[in-house]
């Protein structure tokens, strides 16, 4: 982790209040304040490290990459969901309050139980569905002495086709959007922003044929229609995924589905079929 060159004693200090919850001794979370040395580059995560190493080794939080890509370090900073490693003390000259991500059960201090989130991700079948065409004419051919030329070849996909879904593929599963979403807070069964964005990502992929399999979950009452477009999820997303857009584009898809089903003569067997392979 970052070791400031100057000694902590010469540095400015800032008051960082942290919501603590130690399951083996607390019944409800309590606030605790620390004075933390900082400079221009000190992130909230660095501040947590400093506290853990110098003041209170039992302080508990998740982290790994410290470069805003692994999605571990989500916390509430002054009531707004943020990545600890991408939020800097310099932006809070009056001090700041750090708490566990809202809307999730708290395991300990800043660590929340993410299992519901993972479950929602799994529900929407986030993988390519359907048989890819094995050999595409004109696809990139491997070098001259490539062993088995009859083997799998890449499918074609134009940069425009990639662009259609790319934004929604940039989700780092940090869960900030779930903390920003009052609908998820009220109803944890709501699939939620990131899961729906991921479903949308695969639905928009030109290589995918799985929309029919994903749609039932998306159309259900805990799917897109739980969203009232508060839009805060997209504001807090650190990766510009814009999950609110995905959900509300999903509502249009869902409506079209409904209309098509309404007019479809075989209304009764409109349930999606397993793709034949």
């Amino acid at each position: 982790m970052k070791q400031p060159e100057t000694k902590p004693s010469d540095m400015q200090h800032l008051s960082v209040a942290i919501q603590r919850y130690r399951p083996e001794q607390d019944d409800t979370p309590v606030w605790q304040s620390y004075q933390v040395p900082y400079d221009d580059s000190t992130s909230v995560l660095d501040a947590l490290h400093w506290i853990k190493e110098h003041q209170d080794s039992s302080l508990t939080y998740r982290w790994s990459c410290r470069m805003a890509i692994c999605g571990s370090c989500g916390v509430m900073v002054d009531g707004t969901p943020k990545l600890g490693c991408k939020t800097f003390l310099r932006d809070y000259p009056q001090g700041l309050k750090v708490a566990a991500l809202a809307n999730f059960p708290i395991e300990k201090d800043l660590v929340v139980d993410m299992s519901r989130f993972l479950q929602h991700l799994t529900t929407i079948k986030p993988y390519l569905i359907g048989e890819p065409s094995l050999v595409q004419a004109g696809s990139a051919s491997a070098g001259s002495d490539q062993p088995s030329s009859a083997a799998l070849q890449p499918q074609l996909q134009s940069p425009e086709q990639v662009k259609r879904y790319q934004q929604f593929a940039n989700c780092i599963n940090c869960g900030l959007c779930y903390s920003a979403c009052p609908q998820f807070g009220l109803n944890p069964e709501f699939l939620g922003p990131a899961a729906i964005a991921l479903a949308h990502r695969y639905n928009l992929d030109s290589r995918d044929q799985g929309k029919a399999e994903r749609q039932p979950a998306l159309n259900s009452k805990d799917g897109v229609w739980s969203c009232t477009f508060v839009g805060f999820c997209s504001t807090v997303c650190p990766k510009g995924v814009d999950p609110a857009a995905a959900i509300n584009q999903g509502k249009i898809v869902s409506t079209m589905d409904g209309v098509i089903q309404w007019f479809s003569p075989k209304q009764l067997d409109a349930t999606p079929q397993e793709p034949t392979s």
Partner: peptide
């Protein structure tokens, strides 16, 4: 070196968003 290409193609079939040329090739 003989198996790397197949593996990257396999990943393509699993949906990896490889950057593409205008022609659609990787």
């Amino acid at each position: 070196v003989k198996h790397a290409y197949q593996e990257l193609v396999q990943l393509e079939h699993w949906g990896c968003p490889w950057s593409r040329q205008a022609s659609g090739q990787v």
